[in-house]
Design a binder for these strands. Structure first.
Length: 670
RNA sequence: GCGCCAGUAGCUCAGAUGGAUAGAGCAUUAGCCUCCGGAGCUAAGGGUCGGGGGUUCGAAUCCCUCCUGGCGCGCCA
């Protein structure tokens, strides 16, 4: 509701200014620092003053007087230097929020068919080991972005890229077949054992030292294994497929614990076998986007020239002549095809990205993924026949979010540059790298887990995790730990609950704690992980927000038991209760409850789910504050009691919805 | 060397589109249950927004420069 009103105000101001002063301005609106100053303020008159060369305060006064009635706005006043402060019609706001709430409840998560399709790719873990905390940050960010985009009415498709033919899988295959001397049959049996991903985690770490022993042997083995896997023939390929598929199953189950699911597993094996790269290669060659280097150290490679400075040089009119040597030695040039003819990761990614936008002229085949978690339907790409029931995954997207960590920013730029070089400016623009920083460990946390640190590492604020070294907090371990901690607490508080209910509650709290913990940081903050912080349930945390909902539900239960009458709240009493300084604290809570649409818009505009987490926390905080100030059920004034009760219901609905967008359930009791 | 990101309270972090007295959580200190659940609430202390220039009526936010830390820059992905 807040967003609706401010949009209305923005339009009215823009229209008025256009008409009266002939100026086209984008109207910036912000929240005044205090509620006494109104609900929305615009500093637009400062800007206007500059253009008109008039005193800002005078203009502000003119606008405040001249601006006609805006629906839902009680008055617009001049304040401060030349701010225009708008005061909402509180009674109307109350009705609108209530109305909006009823509508939302009826059409929950309805996607409009006319909306263009958006693809969000996230998780995309190498299928050769268990998922760790950094992977969880990726998945939680991606999943939350999906929920937010869908809430805003977009059609969103969730993809998870599976690099099942890469070096990391090859390494584990070598671990099984060479280091451990297992047979293909032996591995096929192993994959069904519990915690197979944990086994691979350790095995992968061991291959590092195995390769270090004899580098020549390592290079040879890797080369052979990788080629066999890419071709999809022989024992190596067979083991690679079995292992990768099994690990994908583990990952899906791990993420399902956090209520994260996928619609399509896009596998690299199909990008190769269905010749996606070949098609992209032809396009890139034909357009001149990539060139064959004939001399220098990159001789024989197809490279994409990287010319970021070109524009600036032209602008500065300093087009310096490049010597032939400089041309060859430009280290920024990106190799797309190696001199041995194999394609790099970036090349494959360009092909994949082209497909996402429907620009490749090819499509995958699709089949149901047999090893999906309970209650989930997951599809995967295949080279074989299509399953007739498969959704139309090949429909072009209008924009694509790729959730990938910040270290790969340069590569993502190269992919976009590839699209641009092919003339797909729009697609390049709509290729959104949803970048995020790594999750590291505090030195203390690393030490707790038994990792030995060098003295330099111990002094740093954080230590980077490494799958290669087997160094990191596994996602399932962390969840187990969280669930154990929350279960102990729930058992202590609710001995009367049935064990299954206790477990479910503990699970919901654990998920709330973890998801909120990962979402409260903005994307480019490095998270220094520590069990102490992640296991904290106080202050700015998921459980704090959940607890506010639980309290409201407690009040409602008590209210029903006591047979409290649910009197209709009259408009007069609403205006009276919300009015004046007395009503300000109630009004602030209502205002916060009605601000979800604003938070969602801002989260999308900034591509920052943390915005929503913050706003959910603030609403919970505002409620807790209110809760201690007003005793609802013992309120003797019937109209006031009915109003307070209705207000808590609105807060509950909005808070539950906000938490839902963060992927967090609110339990009945906790 | 080049590029990207960060530096805000003791600690961890918010401050989108430049605006009013820079905010949370944790930690510290002092309080709050005859009362809808204390995973809570109230209050206090705590700031040269890394340094220095500049643009602007106005800068944590934009520009320049320097310092510190991190990450990229591979015929790995």
């Amino acid at each position: 509701m807040y967003q609706t009103l401010t949009n209305r105000l923005r339009e009215a101001l823009a229209g008025h200014i256009r008409e009266k002063y002939g100026a086209e301005l984008t109207i910036v609106l912000e929240r005044p620092p205090k509620i006494e100053m109104g609900e929305a303020a615009s500093p637009v008159c400062f800007e206007l003053a500059k253009r008109l060369k008039k005193a800002p305060r005078m203009i502000a006064q003119e606008i405040a007087n001249g601006l006609g009635k805006v629906e839902g706005i009680a008055k617009v006043e001049v304040a401060g230097g030349a701010y225009l402060n708008a005061y909402f019609e509180r009674g109307e706001y109350w009705q609108s929020v209530a109305l909006e709430e009823r509508k939302e409840a009826q059409h929950r998560d309805t996607e409009s068919a006319e909306k263009k399709k958006i693809i969000v790719e996230h998780t995309s873990i190498n299928p050769n080991k268990a998922a760790h905390i950094g992977h969880v940050r990726n998945a939680v960010l991606g999943d939350t972005m999906v929920r937010i985009l869908r809430h805003a009415g977009n059609r969103v498709q969730i993809q998870n890229y599976i690099d099942n033919t890469g070096v990391q899988v090859a390494d584990v295959v070598i671990g099984f077949l060479q280091m451990e001397q297992r047979s293909a049959v032996g591995v096929k049996i192993m994959v069904h054992e519990p915690k197979f991903d944990y086994y691979c985690w350790d095995l992968y770490a061991k291959t590092t030292s195995f390769f270090a022993e004899n580098k020549e042997r390592a290079a040879k083995l890797r080369g052979e294994t990788l080629r066999a896997i890419e071709e999809g023939k022989g024992e190596d390929a067979e083991v690679a497929q079995v292992v990768a598929d099994a690990i994908v199953g583990c990952h899906l189950r791990t993420m399902a614990r956090l209520d994260i699911g996928y619609e399509l597993l896009a596998r690299e094996s199909e990008i190769l076998h269905l010749h996606f790269w070949d098609a992209a290669f032809e396009m890139l060659k034909k357009s001149g986007a990539i060139q064959l280097a004939t001399s220098g150290k990159m001789a024989g490679c197809w490279i994409m020239p990287w010319e970021e400075e070109v524009k600036e040089e032209q602008d500065a009119k300093v087009v310096k002549e490049k010597t032939a040597e400089e041309e060859v030695e430009n280290s920024q040039d990106k190799i797309i095809v190696r001199s041995n003819g194999t394609v790099t990761y970036v090349g494959k990614d360009i092909a994949y990205q082209l497909w996402k936008f429907g620009l490749l002229g090819k499509d995958f085949h699709y089949r149901k993924w047999p090893d999906a978690p309970e209650r989930q339907t997951v599809w995967a790409t295949t080279s074989d026949k299509d399953d007739p029931g498969a959704p139309h995954f090949g429909e072009p997207a209008s924009s694509v979010y790729n959730v990938i960590d910040a270290r790969q920013a340069y590569l993502q730029k190269v992919v976009a540059a590839g699209l641009r070089a092919l003339g797909h400016e729009k697609a390049a623009e709509q290729s959104i790298h949803l970048s995020y920083e790594i999750v590291a460990l505090t030195p203390r946390c690393a030490a707790e887990m038994g990792y030995e640190l060098t003295p330099e590492e111990a002094k740093k604020p954080y230590v980077e995790v490494s799958g290669r070294k087997g160094f990191g907090v596994k996602a399932d371990d962390l969840l187990d730990k969280l669930e154990a901690a929350t279960l102990a607490e729930v058992q202590q508080r609710h001995a009367e609950m049935k064990p299954e209910e206790q477990k479910l509650t503990a699970h919901e709290i654990a998920v709330g704690a973890l998801r909120f913990f990962l979402l409260k940081f903005t994307r480019n903050a490095i998270i220094a992980f520590d069990f102490k912080d992640a296991l904290s349930f106080e202050g700015e945390t998921g459980p704090y927000c959940q607890y506010a909902v639980v309290r409201i539900r407690g009040i409602r239960r008590k209210g029903v038991e006591a047979g409290a009458t649910n009197a209709e709240v009259t408009k007069e009493s609403v205006s009276q209760l919300l009015g004046g300084a007395e009503g300000n604290s109630l009004w602030e809570l209502l205002l916060a409850a009605g601000s979800l649409d604003y938070a969602v818009d801002a989260a999308i505009a900034t591509q920052e789910p943390a915005f929503l987490a913050k706003s959910a926390f603030q609403l919970a905080q505002a409620f807790n504050n209110f809760y201690h100030k007003h005793h609802i059920l013992s309120e003797t004034d019937e109209q006031k009691r009915a109003f307070l009760l209705r207000l808590t219901e609105l807060v509950e609905a909005q808070l539950v919805r906000a938490l839902g967008l963060l992927g967090i359930e609110a339990p009945e009791k906790m």
